[in-house]
Design a binder for these strands. Structure first.
Lengths: 329, 329
DNA sequence: CTGTTAGCGCTTTCAA
DNA sequence: TTGAAAGCGCTAACAG
């Protein structure tokens, strides 16, 4: 495509390539006369410098990698958007890969990203440990973990306070008269599911309430499945590990003639854009996804530019959103 | 990060760098003995070749750019996923940028992608003409247009048959007794909106039916707004330019006490994942988004690898999906 | 079969 | 202020 190189510009302007470079990067003084010549040549030739060559020279690619479970998941896509906006604004470009919650794929993506010399990595892992990643971090790769942590790893991260989210949810439900609970959680090995599990159990014990907890997966189908198979009498409230699970559950229950929220209250987690429009509109815990992505990108650039040398862990605040899928018992 | 280079490997293995290169790329025969030494050195050093240097050498980056209006739009995200999967499988990496339907931003993204020497571009433009892009194409940039075409440009593309989609929809509605129509369409300058407009008008004339057509934007808010402001008597059916518009309309009408589909039939377009779960479940036209992305990626790689030299235009088939937001009048 | 060398496009000393 | 030249990591043409 851009076949025209710095040499062509130099020739056209009748100067050396170093002069061209100096004009372009304003890295050293150049006489007005030559400067003008160069600028004209650049214009006429439609020259634009090769980031590739620059990267090779500088060892910095102005490219950030983002490994995440699935770009098409509404929860992650807003995070990506937050990161994308911030990074583009600051002259960085984003390469991403979806791991589909598959450790092997996660590895492949990481290898490719490393061989492309990314300047930094935003990482939402499958949850399993990743020795290759750890090694890269020790060798100086700048990484910010997003939404999910890997235990025993000391890196910067941006997460939302799961404990607080569950606490607000349970407190609200207890306040409104709910006394026994089922929690349909997401994938067992993920950081988020584990944290929400711990928070849930802890709150149940605190109040001495009757409860059940099940790990499933963070999907509509998991919720639907659960709803279909539920036979015993319903609890006062069913908490779901995320909104998708809640949608599936809601649909399955509705097909059985269960009325929501009259017969049972149902809650989600995440507050993805659609939860507001669902019928019934979903009571859920809002996570500031766009902000998560943006914040993580911000930290990452600081790390890269050496403006920050310590590990920073940001814990964002969730927000309880009460809508129509719950009611006072 | 990967500070170890081919030199280090060569030194460690006690051979020249060319030998290392030959082993790594199997581009020329190397004795078993040296081969083994090199492989060991690679192992021990954890060496992985720099794609950056390779790219500079070869003039190919194994990177594809994707410019689209908004990654967080459910319609586009599935397209991206289709492209992503295919490209990664074939050793390519994806850089994307959201233009937000803003021509200037589109330009910035294009410039960056070009300076990063992408091997090819997947392009869903704002709809306005883009001279810079045209020039790049003439200079040999491989491009596949996705979902939206720019007129007077002769490049490969993958679209879905909008005429057919609207035809199926109108035919079904007419068959089920609907006789007068309103169409709330998306952004006026987009290819898709224009095509759907043309198809709609043409069908209305063909049947000699009473109709109204309005350009708005492809968003929930546009539909909601329209629904709020509608005062005159309702038509038999309201067609929406996409599902988001339909959701907004549905909610606004419901707030006014209008019953769907009893008082008026409403249809969407796209069949984004949520339309199936909406209440009422949306009658809409399904677009094979994942396949679009995949097909476009496929064509692009063929173009890049010289396996295809002619312009190819793929027109995928839409599918009518009848659900609960329409009924026989 | 193996090593030396030029060069991809650029930045940055080092001299002049 | 300017130009020549080295070198980022790699591949490929050229000798041997």
């Amino acid at each position: 495509m851009a076949k025209v190189s710095i040499k062509d510009v130099a020739r056209k302007a009748g100067v050396s390539i170093s002069t061209v470079s100096r004009v372009l990067t304003s890295s050293a003084p150049v006489s007005e006369e030559l400067k003008k010549k160069v600028e004209e040549a650049v214009q006429e030739l439609g020259y634009s410098p090769s980031m590739l060559a620059r990267s090779l020279r500088h060892g910095r690619t102005k490219t950030i990698g983002f490994i995440l479970p699935d770009i098409s998941n509404p929860f992650f896509v807003q995070i990506v958007r937050g990161a994308e906006d911030y990074l583009w604004e600051h002259g960085y470009t984003l390469i991403f890969g979806s791991s589909d919650q598959n450790r092997k794929k996660e590895d492949t993506i990481l290898n490719t990203l490393l061989s492309k010399h990314i300047d930094g990595l935003l990482f939402t892992g499958t949850g399993e440990s990743n020795p290759k990643l750890l090694r890269s971090i020790q060798h100086g790769l700048n990484v910010v973990f997003l939404d999910r942590l890997i235990k025993d790893v000391n890196v910067s991260y941006v997460v939302v306070d799961n404990f607080k989210g569950i606490t607000m949810l349970v407190d609200y439900l207890v306040d409104t008269g709910h006394r026994n609970f089922i929690f349909i959680n997401g994938d067992k090995n993920t950081f988020s599911a584990k944290q929400r599990h711990d928070a849930f159990i802890s709150k149940m014990r605190e109040y001495g309430l009757q409860h059940e907890h099940h790990y499933a997966s963070f999907s509509y189908d998991a919720g639907y499945e659960f709803g279909k198979n539920i036979t015993k009498s319903l609890p006062d409230a069913i908490l779901c590990g995320n909104d998708l699970i809640a949608f599936g559950l809601l649909d399955a229950l509705e097909e059985k003639g269960v009325r929501i929220p009259d017969d049972v209250s149902v809650t989600g987690y995440d507050d993805i854009p659609f939860s507001k429009y669902y019928k019934p509109a979903l009571t859920t815990v809002h996570q500031p996804t766009y902000e998560m992505g943006k914040t993580a990108a911000e930290i990452l650039l600081k790390l890269i530019n050496g403006e920050m040398t310590t590990i920073e862990g940001i814990v964002l605040e969730p927000e309880l959103v009460v809508r129509e899928s719950t009611r006072r018992k």
